[in-house]
């Protein structure tokens, strides 16, 4: 009597609804969310700080280029070594961001396995669980990356004032600065979403009984 026809009428929730559920979830768990966001802020602040101060150093050496050209070969070699070192630092900064954010996202998903199991028992479909975590990660990623970029650049400039004096303000061309902002921001958001994707996918595919049994 209750046939498959009835079962075929499955509507997934509209995106707006999922977003509002997700936002409610973030608000309810505000402290947990803030910890995740602060992880992203730290990582991205570090990245944008490194990029910014590298920019200062590069432009200073460019401005002093004429002097350097007259300088000894040892001096030029030393500057080249410094460049290689900063590339390493940038690479390291991205790596640290990645590890930090992946860790934060993994935690925020795995600690909610039980909740996911319960929601699936109540009729949540897999894509709902997946979307919920992805939307959450986008929101946290955007906020975290934005704050991180601001903090990183602010710190770089404060330090710059001490190192280079008031001339620091004109040291970086605006295009360069915007490039740093865009690169750090996009990196932050992408890493966050990618980091959330794996655990969220695993969680959404779980049989509810497995999710409920998961002990952490």
């Amino acid at each position: 009597m209750k046939t498959e026809n009835e079962i075929m009428e499955i509507e997934s929730l509209p995106l707006g609804k999922i977003i509002s559920i997700t936002c409610k979830g973030i608000k309810i768990r505000i402290w947990r969310s803030l910890i995740v966001v602060s992880g992203i802020v730290l990582a991205i602040a570090f990245l944008s700080y490194i990029l910014c101060s590298d920019g200062f150093a590069q432009n200073v050496s460019k401005a002093a280029g004429s002097i350097v050209e007259q300088g000894s070969p040892e001096k030029i070699q030393e500057l080249k070594d410094q460049r290689v070192q900063t590339y390493w630092m940038v690479g390291l900064a991205i790596l640290i961001s990645f590890v930090g954010i992946v860790n934060a996202m993994l935690m925020s998903v795995t600690e909610r396995f039980r909740e996911i199991g319960t929601m699936k028992c109540l009729g949540a479909i897999d894509s709902f669980v997946l979307k919920m975590f992805l939307i959450e990660s986008v929101i946290e990623g955007v906020i975290g990356a934005l704050l991180g970029v601001l903090a990183g650049i602010l710190i770089a400039y404060v330090e710059g004032v001490f190192t280079y004096g008031s001339g620091v303000w004109s040291l970086l061309p605006l295009a360069w600065l915007l490039g740093v902002v865009a690169f750090s921001f996009v990196t932050g958001v992408i890493i966050t979403v990618v980091a959330a994707l794996y655990p969220a996918r695993e969680a959404s595919k779980m049989m509810p009984v497995v999710a409920l049994r998961a002990e952490l």
């Binding site: 079962i7 499955i10 997934s12 109540l122 009729g123 897999d126 509810p208």
Partner: peptide, 12 residues
Amino acid sequence: LNPVELAWLRCH
């Protein structure tokens, strides 16, 4: 049932 239909069943 596929996962979506199973979810429907659990829900209703």
